[in-house]
Amino acid sequence: MTRFVTVLALTLFAAGLAAAAEDAVVVLPAKNGNVSFPHQKHKEALACTSCHETEKGGKIADLGKDWAHKTCMGCHKEKGKGPAKCNECHKK
Results as ranks from 00 to 15, higher is better:
1 M>A: 11
3 R>F: 05
3 R>W: 03
3 R>A: 10
3 R>N: 08
4 F>Y: 05
5 V>H: 06
6 T>W: 01
7 V>P: 01
7 V>M: 08
8 L>W: 12
8 L>T: 11
8 L>Q: 09
8 L>C: 11
10 L>P: 00
14 A>Y: 08
14 A>R: 12
15 A>P: 00
16 G>P: 06
17 L>A: 02
17 L>E: 04
19 A>D: 03
20 A>F: 02
22 E>R: 07
25 V>F: 05
26 V>K: 06
27 V>Y: 11
28 L>Q: 05
28 L>P: 02
31 K>V: 08
31 K>Q: 08
32 N>S: 13
32 N>D: 15
33 G>M: 09
34 N>P: 03
35 V>P: 04
37 F>A: 10
37 F>E: 04
37 F>M: 12
38 P>Q: 05
39 H>W: 14
42 H>E: 08
44 E>Q: 12
45 A>K: 14
46 L>Q: 14
46 L>T: 10
49 T>Q: 14
51 C>H: 09
51 C>I: 10
52 H>W: 08
53 E>P: 00
53 E>C: 02
54 T>Y: 13
57 G>S: 06
58 G>C: 03
58 G>M: 05
59 K>V: 15
60 I>F: 04
60 I>N: 02
60 I>E: 02
62 D>K: 13
62 D>E: 14
63 L>F: 13
63 L>Y: 15
64 G>I: 02
65 K>A: 06
66 D>S: 12
66 D>N: 09
66 D>F: 01
67 W>F: 15
68 A>R: 02
68 A>S: 12
69 H>Y: 05
70 K>M: 03
70 K>S: 10
72 C>P: 00
72 C>F: 13
72 C>Y: 10
72 C>R: 04
73 M>K: 10
73 M>P: 00
75 C>I: 11
76 H>R: 01
77 K>P: 00
79 K>N: 15
80 G>I: 07
80 G>S: 08
80 G>T: 06
81 K>D: 06
83 P>C: 02
83 P>L: 04
84 A>R: 02
85 K>N: 10
85 K>I: 10
85 K>C: 00
86 C>H: 06
87 N>Y: 04
88 E>C: 05
89 C>Q: 05
89 C>H: 08
90 H>M: 07
